[in-house]
Simulated assay, not measured.
Amino acid sequence: MANESASLYFVIVGFSGLQEKFYPVFGSLMFCVYSISLCANSLVIGLVLWKKQLHQPMYIIIANLAMSDLLFDTTTLPKIMSKYWFGTDSISFSACFLQMAFVHTLNCLDSLTLLLMAFDRYVAICKPLRYHAIISSRTAIFLCLAAWFAAASVGTFVMTWALPLPYCGPNRVKSFFCFLAPVAVLSCVDSSPIRKNGLYAGLIMHMGPFSLIVVSYIIVITSICALSRLDNWQKALNTCITHWFVITIFYIPRIVDYGYHAQVLPNPDITALMICIYSYVPHISSPIIFCLRNKEIKKSLESFSKLGISRRRFKPR
């Protein structure tokens, strides 16, 4: 069916219950979130590229996650800040669907990257003698590129579900950005089958990797408990704790959101709040957790800071 959109733009609603006097405050909060994400994720990517000792599979995967999070925030947050600071809440028809493709692609990429991270830890702990034979830096890069290709395919495919629908009625997107469910519901025809397919696709792309991650870490924990020496037990456990933090803050809010949407009439403002939590909290938390808890990244960060201080100290006048 040809697209019969009566308008050439959509309106981003965000928090419908938020009073206008609080718009600048919320816009400033989103600016802080974006600034932290931009600095923290860029720092992680820069450190992995700069330090040769970080040219290892685990850090390549971490940098891939940081790149995905940075792109997601750059795709969505400037528009949110523009809405609450300047009142420009409209987004063109083409820009909305382009944003939709990026949102679904990068969400899927995060999930696949966390799966790669769990696979790396599984091999490192359960098959330590064969680790370098199974996972090399080239293999990690190839797996990351494969994850990008798979995620882009999913994001493009999901976007093409909503694009052909006729949009000739309401144009208010009850979310902070364009993705399948709040856009498809604005169609002039019944879009419930497409929205259900989108929900099933989300469950597969998130709960599928999450299930494999849980299974892999059950095996890892069993292997850790089987270690005879206490120092080996502690060292192996410490390498996993950081990943558990990141996996928890990424998946748990999404599981809660899926359960909440099982209700007949979910509150749109609560839905928007959940979207904010599971979209942006992991993006600012993950790089901070990696920098604080990962010894190699922490050492590289300290050496980078010392290098900057020494350059300022000995700068010729």
Rank of each mutant, 00 (worst) to 15 (best):
L47G: 07
A272W: 03
V246S: 10
R229I: 13
I194D: 07
T88Y: 05
A6W: 04
T222A: 09
A124Y: 05
L199Q: 09
G27H: 02
L112C: 13
A6H: 13
D89M: 09
I204Y: 01
F93I: 13
I60S: 04
F15S: 07
I288A: 04
I252F: 05
A95D: 15
N294W: 00
Y217G: 06
L292Q: 07
V189G: 05
C178N: 10
C39K: 05
C108F: 02
Q53W: 05
T113N: 06
R138G: 15
F93Y: 03
L265Q: 12
L199A: 14
V154R: 03
A226V: 09
C276P: 05
F176E: 00
P287Q: 00
T271N: 06
A118E: 04
Y200V: 15
V103Y: 04
T248S: 06
E302Q: 09
L180H: 04
I255M: 07
S37I: 04
M30P: 02
L18P: 03
T139L: 03
K299D: 13
R317N: 12
S191K: 04
T113E: 05
S28M: 07
S90V: 13
L114I: 11
E296I: 10
C188H: 01
L230S: 10
I289F: 03
F290D: 06
K127A: 12
A95V: 09
N238S: 15
Q56I: 10
P166T: 07
L109S: 08
C96V: 08
L145W: 08
W148A: 15
S300Y: 00
I60Y: 00
Y260N: 10
W244L: 15
V44N: 02
T139I: 13
L163P: 07
A181D: 15
T156V: 13
V214L: 14
K298W: 14
L273T: 15
W50D: 13
Y200C: 15
P57H: 04
A236D: 09
S82M: 07
L29D: 02
A63E: 02
K83V: 10
S82W: 06
S192D: 08
A66V: 01
M1L: 14
L265M: 14
W233H: 14
F31L: 11
V281D: 00
